[in-house]
Amino acid sequence: MADAVFLALSVITIGSAIAALELRSLIYGSIALMGTLGGIAGFFLLLDSPFVAMFQIAVYVGSIAVLILFTVMLVKRELIFKKIEDKRRKFAGIGLMLVLMVGLGSVILDSGIKSITTDEPAVDFRDIGADFLTYYWPALILMALILAGSVTGALVLARREDVGNEQRAN
């Protein structure tokens, strides 16, 4: 059975995931998202993968969340608070979620992974580096291309072309 740390982490993670979507203020939503990401990092630590956990915190919390937070702050204040949304749609969404969760959960609980544990030592993080550079090296190159493409594209998108004519009314 799960231990206390695990339970606490899962409560934090799932709770803040719900909060990220449901809190009225987008800023608090972003903070809650950080909670989720941090919780996932905690799971990674539980799973003996500190490299991924630290990568998760450094990249996800340290940069992606910052970017999200900053972008949220760029948005006008009244828009940070969302409009009241369609009730029916919300219930439909909750229904979909429940169906999905229950369905998937039962599928998983039904399957053979129910009682898998392991006593083998965890993978050393150096193996990951070795993986990167030997087996996955084309993927690493592609990764660089992705990063290059995304930074190029994002900068070209986010810059202003013509300051005078930029604010275009709807």
Binding site: F51, F55, A58, V59, G62, S63, I64, V66, L67, F70, F125, I128, G129, F132, L133, L140, M143, A144, L147, S150, V151, A154, L155, A158
Partner: peptide, 17 residues
């Protein structure tokens, strides 16, 4: 900040190497 998001990934990838 946009650049940071991308190059931070790059920098930490380098640590794996």
């Amino acid at each position: 900040i946009l650049m940071f998001v991308v190059f931070d990934v790059m920098a930490i990838f380098l640590y794996a190497w």
